[in-house]
Computed example of a mutant assay.
Amino acid sequence: MKFSVKKLTFFLLLFTSLSFSQSPYGGLAIDANYGISGVKDPGLSDFSHFDFGVRYMFNDLWGLKLDYGQDKFRTQETPTEEGIDISRISAQGYFNLTNIIDSRSYFYSRTFNLMGHAGVGYSMQKSVTIPEGGTDEIGHIIFGITPQFSITDNLAVGLDATGIIHLSQHYWFDGNYTYTSPEFNGSPNATTTFIYNLTLGLSYTFGQQ
Rank of each mutant, 00 (worst) to 15 (best):
W172L: 08
M124R: 11
G93T: 04
T78N: 13
M124Q: 11
S103M: 12
T135H: 10
D160E: 15
F149N: 04
Y108N: 15
E132N: 14
L167D: 08
I145R: 02
T78W: 12
Q148G: 03
Q148Y: 05
I151N: 02
L97D: 02
N154K: 02
L114P: 00
I100G: 08
F112H: 07
D160M: 06
I145P: 00
T98G: 04
N176A: 11
G116P: 00
F149D: 03
S150P: 05
S123C: 09
L167T: 12
I145S: 01
T152D: 10
I141L: 08
G139D: 12
M115C: 08
N113P: 07
Y177R: 10
Y106D: 14
G134K: 02
T152E: 12
Q148H: 07
I145Q: 03
T98W: 00
G175Q: 00
D174I: 11
P79I: 04
N96V: 07
G133C: 01
G158P: 09
A161Q: 04
Y122H: 13
G133V: 04
T98K: 00
N113E: 06
Y177T: 05
P79M: 06
Q169A: 07
R104G: 14
H166R: 15
I84Q: 00
Q92P: 08
E81R: 15
R110D: 13
S105D: 08
F149V: 08
A156M: 13
E132H: 10
F95T: 01
I165V: 14
A161L: 14
D153H: 14
G83H: 04
S90E: 06
W172I: 06
W172M: 07
T98N: 03
M115A: 06
F143T: 01
S105Y: 05
I101T: 06
Q92L: 13
I145D: 00
N176I: 06
Y106G: 11
T129C: 06
I130V: 14
G93F: 11
H117N: 11
E137W: 14
V128Y: 02
Y171H: 06
I141D: 00
I145K: 00
H117G: 09
A161G: 09
T129K: 01
I142W: 01
T178W: 01
I151W: 09
G83Y: 00
L97P: 00
G121V: 00
Y108W: 15
I89D: 01
S90K: 08
A118F: 04
N113A: 07
N96I: 03
H170L: 13
P79D: 02
L159M: 11
G139W: 14
I86T: 10
F95V: 01
S127M: 01
D153E: 13
T98L: 03
S87A: 15
R88N: 10
A91D: 07
I100C: 11
I165S: 09
V120T: 13
N154D: 08
E81A: 14
T162E: 11
I100K: 10
R110T: 09
T129H: 02
A156P: 02
F95Y: 04
G163A: 13
Y108M: 15
T178A: 08
E137H: 13
Y94G: 04
